[in-house]
Amino acid sequence: MQLQTAERKRVKLRLNIASPSGFGKTYGALLIAYGITGNWEKIAVIDTENDSASLYAHLGDFKSLSLHPPFSPDRYMEAIRICENAGMEVIIIDSVTHVWKGQGGLLEYQNSLGGRYQDWAKATPLYQKWLNAILQSQCHVITTNRKKQGYNMITEGNKTKVEKAGLDDEIRDGYEYEMTIALEVINDKHLAKASKDRTGLFVDKPEFLITVETGKQILDWCNQGRSTEPENHAFTEKINSCNSIAELGRLYIQHPEYQQTHNAQFTKRKKELQPALMTADAHLNHQNLHSNGNGSI
């Protein structure tokens, strides 16, 4: 634990786009992603929306990973790891609504436990683990979620009536506050506005159309400050210098801040060390056989 002067560092984008179905969430996410990378082949879409991303295949050769039920947090996290290990620069998760209310999602899981308030004690850690996989990814991450009509119950005297109350996000309350930017597509003309913005690029600005330039603007903001690449490279070298799986495990436990960002490097080094471990075990077993007169261990 060390007190130090605050310093602006380069960051990876965490952006959410919310809207009702048909307002252009997926299309907007792809345009922003291309503005960030300038390379369609470095963009991956984790698609829970019945392969809807394929409707935009004419834009470029982006990658797609279809995610089918059950929509558990673990399956989302596995999909994120696949994209990271493939060297993607931007991951689009379209959408996160299913991890909340889809088949096998968190609401269904909490319901299966009894649906009581105390059952969230088991469901919430799964949500947080899933959220951390997004927040700690080494890639830029863009997510989408659906919005639905909200309602209020109004009591007047002995009568109760239901009134429309705007649109509600179909994801856990507070999700957008974890993002760098949260955009809402407000109508079928694809106009967007910021509901939360740490960059200052879109706050108090009129509604706008999401374009490739939007992604370029955001990338410029992300790249302000000191690069963390030297630190990341130095830690990768530490991983590669581990000579046993036990040593690699100790390094992993000692540095939780690198567990997600360097997951691909940890996995790669573990696979490299496994053959050596098997060879060592075989050699030890061979020695034990020869040191025992009856051939038993």
Rank of each mutant, 00 (worst) to 15 (best):
Q2L: 04
T5W: 09
L13C: 01
N16D: 08
A18W: 03
F23V: 02
T26N: 03
G28F: 02
W40N: 10
E41K: 10
D47T: 05
N50R: 12
A53E: 02
A57E: 12
L59H: 02
L59R: 15
P69Q: 00
F71K: 08
M77R: 13
A86Q: 07
E89C: 10
K101C: 15
G104K: 06
G105I: 00
N111I: 07
G115M: 03
Y117T: 04
Q118E: 08
D119P: 06
T124H: 11
L126A: 04
L131A: 14
L131P: 12
N132D: 07
C139T: 00
H140W: 09
V141H: 03
R146V: 06
K147A: 03
K148G: 14
Q149H: 04
G150M: 10
I171S: 07
I171R: 07
Y177P: 00
L183D: 02
N187R: 13
K189L: 11
L191R: 09
K196N: 09
R198G: 11
E207W: 12
I210D: 09
V212H: 09
K216A: 15
G225D: 02
P230R: 10
P230W: 06
E231C: 07
H233C: 10
K238C: 05
N240Y: 09
N243Q: 14
S244R: 03
L251M: 11
Y252L: 05
E257Y: 00
Q259H: 04
Q259W: 02
Q259G: 10
T261N: 03
A264T: 07
R269P: 00
L273I: 04
A280S: 09
D281P: 01
L289G: 13
H290Y: 13
S291A: 13
N292T: 15
N294M: 12
